[in-house]
Structure formats: C-alpha cells, structure tokens
Nucleic acid binder design. Sequence first.
DNA 1: TTGTAAGCGTTATCAC
DNA 2: GTGATAACGCTTACAA
Lengths: 354, 354
Amino acid sequence: MGKYGRDINLKPTVNDIARVAGLSLATVDRVINDRPGVRNVTIERVHKAIKELGYVRDTAAANLARGRIYNFHFLLPESNNEFVSMLEQQITELSEVLTLERTKLSFERVPAFDPQAMARIISKMDPQDVDGIAIFGPENSSVREAIAQIKKRGVAVVALVSDLPDSERDHFIGIDNIAAGRTAGQLMGHFLAQGRKKLLVITGSMLARDHLERRLGFDQVMSEKFTDIDVLPSLEGRDNPDLLERLLPAAFATTPDIAGIYSSAAGNAGLINFLRLNDLDQKVMVVGHELTPLSRDALVQGTFDAIISQDTGHLVRSTVRVLRAKSDSLPINISQERIRIDVYLKENMPPLGS
Amino acid sequence: MGKYGRDINLKPTVNDIARVAGLSLATVDRVINDRPGVRNVTIERVHKAIKELGYVRDTAAANLARGRIYNFHFLLPESNNEFVSMLEQQITELSEVLTLERTKLSFERVPAFDPQAMARIISKMDPQDVDGIAIFGPENSSVREAIAQIKKRGVAVVALVSDLPDSERDHFIGIDNIAAGRTAGQLMGHFLAQGRKKLLVITGSMLARDHLERRLGFDQVMSEKFTDIDVLPSLEGRDNPDLLERLLPAAFATTPDIAGIYSSAAGNAGLINFLRLNDLDQKVMVVGHELTPLSRDALVQGTFDAIISQDTGHLVRSTVRVLRAKSDSLPINISQERIRIDVYLKENMPPLGS
DNA sequence: TTGTAAGCGTTATCAC
DNA sequence: GTGATAACGCTTACAA
C-alpha cells in the first residue's frame, strides 16, 4: 500500500449493484434514472443495494455513453455596456473550451429594463433546443410566469447578476447587492475626510433590482455611520453614458461642492468624460462598479478611487456548473459558486487579460 | 437544426484518425501517448491526420479507460496558524468530492521556515505514490535541487502561497504579494486621516518570500504617496501569536502614539489579544491578512478595519486543476487560475461557511 | 417487467 | 512495428 494511498478500494459500479441486487444492468439503470416500467419491489431492491454499497454514479462515463450535449443559453440586457460585453466575451471564450466537455453556450440580447420583452422571449424558447437558461434582467409577473412554464418543461433556470427572488429560478448567480452597496458606503465614508460633505449617487434604473439593492445598502451605511455626509437625491442614468453626461452638469450646477460620487450602475463612460472635461477628476472621490477597460483606466488615472466588482469569468463558469448540476439534479458546491464582492484599488487590480 | 445549435458537427475521434491515416486504433494511440515502437513515417502520418481533422482527445474517456487515479500531496508549514488549518480543511473537503473524479488528495505538515527539512521530505517521496505535489514553504538550493529531482521522475510540482521562482516548479498558485502589500499600504494611507502618523508593521519571517514581498510593496506605496506617515522598524512575529503578544508591549512602550498597524503575516491572535487587553482596539487602525474565524471576528468588532485575503478554497481547487493539467501535459486557463487579492471590509465579508 | 448486447472514446493486452 | 479485441462505467435499442 503506497504511502499516499495509491490503491484505494474501488468505488462500486452499476455492475456491483446489479450483482448484489440480483438484477440486470438495464433494470438498475432504469431505477437510477427514474425510468418507468419497473416494479416497486424491484426498485426497492436496487435502492437497497445502492445504499449498502454506497454507489455514486460516474457522471463522466454516463455522459460519454449518452453522447449528451448540454445546451445553455444566456439572455442579456441590450444596452451599451462594457460589463455585458465582458460577459459575452467570457461566454464566447468558455464556449470553446467547453466543446470538449460536450457543452454548448449561446447568448442573445434582450431589450433592457423591459420585463415584457424578456417574458416573450423566454416563452418562445423551445425546450428541445435548450437544457438551461441564464436570465439577466428585471422581474415581473410575466417573467415569473414564463419561468414557471419553461421550468415545467424541464429547462433549468438561473438568475444572473440581478436576482429573480419570487420566481422559480433554480439558483441566483451574482453578488449580494445590498452588501455591495454597504461596502461602497463604508469605503466612501472612510475615504472622505471628516466634515460635512455632499455625496451624489448615480443609479441605473429603479426597475433593476440590483441597482435598487445597492442604493439601499449604501444608504444604510451612510445613515448608520456617516451621518455628517449629505446624500443628494440620486441621478437615474439608465446605464446610458450619453444620458448621464447630459444629466451631470445640472447636478453640479445645483450643488457645486459635491465631494464624492457613488456610481452604482453602468454608464461610467459618461461620468468619466464629464469629470475629466470639468477638471473634477482628481477632486471628487469616486467609487464605481465593475472592473472594465474604462473603469480600470479611470482607477489608474486616479479618476476613480475604488471599484466594487464581480468577476465575469466566475459568473459565467458558475452559471455553467450550476446549470449542468441542475439539469442532472446533482448537488452544487455552494462555496465554489458564491460570487465574491471584489474591491479593487489601483494596487490590487488584476492584470488585463484576466 | 435547433435554434441554439443542438446538433453540432461531432468532434473527430481516434477512430476517425485511424481511418484517415489508414492505421489501427492501437497505433494511433501509441503515437498520441508517445509510446515507443512506431516508425517515424507512421508517426508523421498520424500527426498529419490529427492536424487535418482537428482532433482533441477526450480526457474523460481516456481517464475512464485508464482507470487512472490522480494522487496529489500538499506540503504545508507546521505552525499554529488558522490560515494553514483552513487550507487543510479545504483539502479534506475537496478530497471527498474528488474521489468521484478519480483524484486523491493528502497533506502533511513540514517544519516551518526550514528549507532543509522541506528538501529532505521532498527527496524521500516516492514518485510511484504521487502524481503531483504542492509546496508551501521557503526556497533554498536544497529545495530547488529536490524539486529538480522529483520533477525529473515525472512528478508535477506547484508552489503554493509563497512562490519558488528560481526552482523548476511548474506553476505558482497564490497572490502577487508585492501587490498585496501595496494594497494594504493604499488602504492604510487612505484610512489614516491627514497628519504625521506612526505606523507599525508586523511581519512573520524574513525567510518567507511572501512576507518579504508584502513588506516591500507596502513600503513602496508609503514612500510614494504617504510621506507624512512614519513607518517604524518591523516586528518579526514568526507567525507565532504568543511571541507576538510578548513583543508588542515593548513596541508600544517605545512609541505610544502608534496610529496604525499593518499585520502582514499570521499570528493575529496575539495582536488581537494585545489590542483588546490594552483598550487599543478601537483606536488603532489595523489592516491584516487572511480572512479566518479570528480575523472575521476582529473585523466585525472593529478591532480590524480591513483584511487582505486569498481564498483558500480557490487555492486548493486551483492547485488540483493545475496539477492535473500538468500531469497530463494539458494547457491551463490562466485567468481561472489567477488568485485574486481580496479586500474585505466588515461589509463585504462572505458568510462563514464559505 | 426484465434481460442481452452493442456502443460511447480511449487505453491496454495480446497476437501476428 | 502493427493490428485485433477486450475493457473502463454507463446508457439504450431490442428481445424475451
């Protein structure tokens, strides 16, 4: 016996189960895969043998035999948005690697902040074509209904980035956005030196749950710990850089002494342009969301001071693992699937191609 | 054809190669696995077919046929250290999941800060028993030599947490410690309000590369951007809580007005005890390393203000993926294997069991 | 309702 | 040097 245990007691196989239960492979397989046409007594016998031997099915072998191919489809918001583009890129990249693992990934853009459109698209999908979908978008009753329907037809569903908590989605893959908002608040509070300061919050859409939650968390911390900071009414930029760039001058005209900005949604391009054009980029403390090429640059230049982020690679890989597990009714490793709230300063930014 | 591409053109298999090359499966297999006893002309023919068809071997099927079991062994420092315990726990947990994937994990403790002992232990290992090892410890010529030897005998080697850059290790799995130190510096600088402040740095051992690098990065940022902060000579705690608790009173006796502490190594228990016993825990700004049960609590209580961390689950999973890839001479996905420098405030701390 | 046997893509043991 | 052929653990026609 090797010191590091090279020779372990082999795990039992379907053959062992068949032998112990005194049945054929086919019957064992029927039971294992809940296929019809087996007497209850027989089912029991198989289950007993499985328990006794501690059998766990070898998924790799099973998939090999089936020639199974997983088809997963992402529904992403149709907005001019670096974060979403990064998701797309990760999907495309991962897709190549995954062909080896019999997994196909695809995506499509869905009108942003438009639950009706989302519901329509979900409803039109053919369960023959997809084993699982990942939905990044707002929730309403139509969306809930569409999800319930497609789930009933055997398609696994996860909510991506923004949760759909009242739907029947199998899982949510994304960060705790309240905590993310709280983190932004804590950083902002610490970064702004003592004294009465004014703070602007930029949000995306009041329809987007993730935006709402961030705002909520941020306000919690502000009112709990940093009562000397004035939080101004928020600016709703709809993740649209141009709109944002048009809205900002008015905000600064009304309140010229804004000391900090929490940019809680997308559309950073507009904000960065505005700050640089008006020579405010080194004066205002800015905390933003999502590490993208633009925000990276802003961090390096000192236009941004911190970025709260979530790893798009992790989001996509996690989606695939979870959808696969759900399609096979297998358990998931929660700790591996938990998406971290990343905090980036200029110093700990990971290198670009990552 | 399904809308989401259910039917893709199947990937070529060894059978296709054999057919195209006009050879048998056995010969193709010999070539693919560099086994001897094939004429050069034949080898060429096979390679040509592989190129033409774009063949990529199905690892799952290969492992199934081989009945291969991967054996990976971790060498961890023998010190009273929560971080190392967390690594052990992750190894143990992952090990269970991985038996399904024909992978056995084991670990042993090696005297800390003792490269000779490490070299001895590596040299004594039997390549029959292990396919790969992960080394967490300091480097010296004996260690380098031991690594070179064991690699020559076909064992994959990765450096874990602390790099062994001049050795022949296949890969380093851990964070960029210079950047981690810089991050700590940046946070500390921002958190300490303006004015001449005194700052204490606690290090582990000057032998440990990771500790040295963090100190280096921290000092870089301090001298570049926060010149009004006085960085005191560092305290070498050797990752030993008791030693640290004995050293701290003297440091505070000499310099009572210490405003910040950067605890760059392990042994936080001693620091926390000292601060609480002396009523300093809410007064001194503390940045520490590694999210552990103790440091989590310190963060919640406000004894610590920020923690720089690396995810132990990610470290262990990444080690396994990389060792597997290296044993099979397969490529790795660099971006998935890059370990993030996590920054935790009280607000974005992940829930405990993660 | 149950069993037999072929096959998934790869490796390994024989022969020739 | 090369080629049949069985085997890995599981699924699935097709028979019985």
